[in-house]
Computed example of a mutant assay.
Amino acid sequence: MRVFVDVEGLSWEKAWELTQNSCAYTNHTLLPEALERWPVSMLEYLLPRHLQIIYDINSRFMD
Rank of each mutant, 00 (worst) to 15 (best):
H28S: 10
R49Y: 12
L10H: 05
D63Y: 06
M62E: 08
Y55R: 09
P32M: 02
H50M: 12
G9R: 06
E36G: 05
N21T: 09
K14V: 09
E44K: 15
E33T: 00
L35Q: 14
N58Y: 11
F61H: 07
W16M: 00
D6R: 15
L35A: 12
F61T: 07
P32G: 06
L35P: 04
I57M: 05
T19Q: 10
A24C: 10
Y45I: 05
W12H: 00
D63Q: 08
I54Q: 13
G9I: 03
I57H: 01
V40F: 10
W16L: 04
E36K: 12
S41L: 08
E44M: 15
C23T: 11
E33D: 00
N27E: 10
P32E: 11
F61Q: 13
S22M: 09
R60D: 03
R37L: 00
P48L: 09
E8S: 07
E13H: 11
Q20C: 11
P39I: 00
Q20L: 04
D63F: 10
D6S: 13
Q20S: 06
E17R: 02
W12P: 03
A34F: 05
E33I: 07
P48C: 15
F61G: 02
M42E: 15
I54R: 12
L35C: 12
V3L: 14
F61V: 04
M62G: 02
E13W: 08
W38T: 11
W12G: 05
Y55V: 01
R37K: 02
W16A: 08
P48I: 01
P39D: 12
P32Y: 11
T29I: 02
S41W: 06
F61D: 15
T19G: 01
W16C: 03
P48D: 13
D6H: 14
V5T: 13
K14I: 02
Q20P: 03
N27Y: 13
S22A: 04
E33H: 12
T26F: 15
G9M: 03
L51Y: 10
P32W: 10
H28T: 02
A15T: 09
L30S: 12
K14M: 05
D63P: 02
L10R: 15
E13R: 03
I57A: 01
V40E: 14
H28I: 04
R2N: 13
T29D: 09
D6F: 11
E36V: 04
L43E: 15
S59M: 01
W16N: 07
H50G: 08
R60H: 09
L30F: 14
A15R: 09
W16P: 01
W38I: 03
Y25I: 15
P48K: 13
R2Y: 08
E44L: 08
K14A: 07
R60I: 09
F4P: 06
P39H: 12
G9S: 06
W38P: 03
Y25N: 10
L46G: 04
G9K: 07
L51W: 13
D56Y: 03
K14T: 07
R49W: 09
E36M: 07
L35I: 10
V40I: 01
L47H: 14
N21S: 07
N27V: 12
L43S: 12
N27F: 07
M1L: 06
L18N: 07
H50N: 11
E13A: 05
P39R: 11
F4V: 05
R49I: 04
R2A: 08
A34S: 08
S22R: 14
Q52G: 08
